[in-house]
């Protein structure tokens, strides 16, 4: 059942990210839904699930981007794994804390990405921070916080986390 849900998430997110989100981007920047999904899966279901879903989702997203497949898969996989480790350290996670956490992790991932991708010299670190990293981190944090708040208000997250991690 869990694998089916993960498969549906992967298959569903790619068209949303490539077809719908470009039309609702803010200042040309769109949120990375796969990042949000991987973080939430890692937090709720643990580091192994986060790693595997991250690898699969990163790979699937890279198929529809100029980004190379390996870096996309590895970055998302690492993010999922780190989110799983972080989720193991906290007992209670409020939406506000999650928003702050997503903001920081998205910024860190965004700062690493230009070096991994070996982008053009025009796309220097300063450009990356102001044009992509910070706006995307804000969008990721808001959307992730919203999804988590919806889950938090309707589901018993602690129970879900303990059941998922078993």
């Amino acid at each position: 059942m869990k694998a089916l849900i993960y498969f549906a998430v992967i298959v569903g997110l790619v068209p949303i990210q490539s077809v719908l989100l470009p039309h609702i981007s803010v200042w040309g920047v769109k949120p990375d839904l796969s990042f949000v999904a991987v973080c939430l899966v890692g937090l709720i279901a643990g580091e192994l699930d986060g790693l595997l879903v991250g690898l699969a989702l990163g790979w699937a997203m890279s198929l529809f981007s100029a980004q190379d497949l390996i870096s996309g898969a590895v970055l998302k996989g690492t993010t999922g794994f780190v989110a799983g480790l972080a989720g193991r350290q906290v007992v209670y996670l409020s939406p506000i804390v999650l928003v702050a956490g997503l903001l920081v992790v998205s910024c860190l991932t965004g700062l690493v990405t230009p070096f991994v991708l070996k982008l053009s010299v025009q796309q220097d670190w300063w450009w990356a921070v102001w044009t992509v990293v910070l706006p995307q981190a804000c969008l990721d944090a808001v959307i992730g916080g919203l999804i988590y708040w919806l889950m938090w208000s309707r589901l018993n997250i602690e129970q879900l986390m303990s059941e998922s991690r078993m």
Binding site: P15, S18, D32, M61, F64, S65, A66, Q67, T113
Partner: peptide
């Protein structure tokens, strides 16, 4: 053309 890049780092079409 059926889509755009899934990320923000490249300008591509699908």
């Amino acid at each position: 053309v059926i889509g755009r890049d899934t990320g923000n780092w490249y300008k591509t079409i699908i």
